[in-house]
Design a protein around this nucleic acid. Structure first.
Lengths: 349, 349
DNA sequence: GAGGGTTGTTGACACGTTTCAATCCGGGTG
DNA sequence: CACCCGGATTGAAACGTGTCAACAACCCTC
């Protein structure tokens, strides 16, 4: 007979530990949750029993009893969105410190799937959630609060403070910074290459760009042209080349500001295929500062969002909402930062 | 008095639904779990009560009772690893179809954190887990099986079939394909730019490359040089340029096969900075086919791994392990595919 | 009309934890 | 010596669900 453990072991719970330590279940519970209330000697006995029996606590039990679980949801638009990974890391780290587990749920841009996921969170009696809402319709989230699960909205600065917290980045400031940079380089004909204007973030970036011209005493209508594509991915960026360049060399933009790095990278590929050089023939600015913006040649000038801090802050806010009884909803706004690389240069007539 | 719901509602459980429907709790449970066992009329009554009371099931309760929760863990090396997102999508989709929630846990390349995460899964009595192990030490996973949570290893083909399932991609075949491609283009001096050889995947790719030479009747030792960097990221790729090019134009490789797209992209950036053109002066092959491999100029020839299918298959295997009592551990091996783009060209002396 | 089978429903219990009032004990005080 | 106090521990009662043996009602057959 070896000491090899049975493949299915008899469930060992708090009660069995109690028996082994010659103590009541309540005491074991105290050892686990409020060790200060229990005498040194008994604590040691119990801890010994715990490790001898290789006891692991059953979180279903405690969630059931306390009415709330110790996991939080991270409801994300799209796992493949490069913006997401940075945020996830921030949320993960902060949650780990608070002893919370993160449940990743993917809405895949679908309203229907978002609803299913919200429901799942409610069933789990999740402690809270960090959510990137799929669209302007917040009814799912309101229902969730009503179920007793609080949340923090990500990148949705327009959430009223009486319904929930939000953490976002100032898109207007980002557009403004990009605009100023290009104007400073002497560019006067700028195209804003974007996804659907239905997306609030995109609209704000556009306004920022226009305000940069206004601030410089120039009429935005005369200098900013818009090319709108149905999606914010590289394929759309590449496809947009024709439209962007339409009108011949005299008409074509001196610089393109893209609502997204993905679009920008696609566009640069398309430009290269057309024999146009960046930044000699045309400057390009992106938005997001994805990891690989630094790897293309030339490097992509872009507006960096503090992804990690965004996630981390959202989770911290959620923590405060969970623990601090006097919590008031808060709206945190980060300011993005322009990262200048090789894809922009002074205009040479 | 408006009909606005109280902000904290009285907990409504299966019993309250039962009362409302004039039926016993057991019946409500049956309606939820085995609707076929209950008569049409009562089913409708119960369903009505459920929606009137806006009942949502409490998964803590059911997990406690059944001893197993309905969520699976996805234990990932590093959320920022580009390989991961594709896998995650596959796991997500398959899990969603099976009605399972995915708990994302990030090991951040740390053995210690992996251990904490495994423990968390045990506490949650997770149904199962899809795991990318942090290193060769499988003791955490064995402990997890012993706790009754089964798992599927990802990209770890060396897991013995008597301890668990595994899904992986044939790294040897990938190296072989890359090697054949380059040899076919007439290249004879090839450098293998890689991360630490301690990583099994990397070793296998190297062997594949060497075997391509052997198969062609050439001595690998004479044609393959190795440059080993401490990590598999773009910075290391860029930094490696000096070593790769050492020895002057007559000695330098005609082509570089990188263990990783990240390395390859970094290398290409470094080569560009040195004034060397890809593929005219030197050909480059990567590994992984990350999204942006198609966006750099020239496009990166690379070995594509079926990330999505990998995740999906892992989750499917896990499902079979959970439901099928006669389950035998399985080892699935995918074959990678070479994607030829602009970064490789025939050797021109 | 008694017996037997089928279909639907019931009650009660168990899962593992936390909580809280009640109890126990030892030492200090009047 | 009676009393009380405070710290340490106990025991029992929930939390919401799933299971299962038992029971009720019904139909069919001989």
């Amino acid at each position: 007979m070896s000491t090899r453990p049975r493949s299915t072991r008899p469930a060992v719970g708090i009660t069995e530990v109690a028996r082994r330590a010659g103590v009541s279940p309540g005491t074991v519970s105290n050892v686990l949750n409020r060790p200060e209330r229990v005498a040194e000697a008994t604590r040691l006995k119990v801890e010994a029993a715990i490790s001898e029996l290789d006891y692991v606590r059953n979180s279903s039990g405690s969630s059931l009893r306390s009415g709330r679980s110790d996991s939080v949801g991270l409801l994300v638009l799209d796992v493949t969105n490069p913006f997401f990974t940075g945020v996830a890391r921030g949320v993960e780290d902060e949650a780990a410190e608070a002893g919370l587990a993160v449940v990743l749920l993917n809405s895949a841009e679908s309203q229907d799937r978002q609803r299913r996921n919200v429901r799942l969170l409610a069933e789990q009696r999740a402690a809270g959630a960090v959510v990137m809402p799929v669209d302007d319709d917040l009814s799912d989230l309101l229902w969730l609060s009503h179920q007793g699960t609080s949340w923090v909205a990500l990148d949705r600065g327009d959430v009223a403070e009486d319904v929930g917290c939000s953490v976002s980045v100032d898109n207007h400031a980002g557009g403004l910074a990009a605009g100023r940079h290009l104007i400073g380089l002497g560019h006067e004909r700028i195209t804003f290459l974007t996804g659907p204007f239905a997306i609030e973030q995109v609209r704000r970036r556009h306004e920022g760009l226009r305000d940069a011209f206004t601030d410089a005493g120039m009429d935005p209508d005369a200098h900013v042209r818009v090319v709108e594509q149905p999606m914010l991915n590289p394929q759309q960026g590449e496809r947009a080349v024709d439209t962007v360049l339409a009108g011949g060399p005299r008409q074509r933009p001196q610089a393109v500001f893209c609502a997204n790095d993905q679009l920008a990278l696609g566009l640069m590929k398309g430009l290269g295929r057309r024999g146009l050089r960046v930044p000699d023939d045309i400057s390009v600015v992106g938005y997001d500062n994805v990891d690989l913006a630094d790897l293309v040649h030339p490097g992509l000038t872009t507006v960096a969002q503090p992804k990690y801090d965004l996630g981390r802050t959202a989770m911290r806010l959620l923590g405060s909402e969970l623990n601090d009884p006097g919590h008031r909803h808060e709206r945190v706004l980060f300011t993005p930062e322009l990262v200048v690389r090789g894809s922009t240069a002074a205009y040479r007539p």
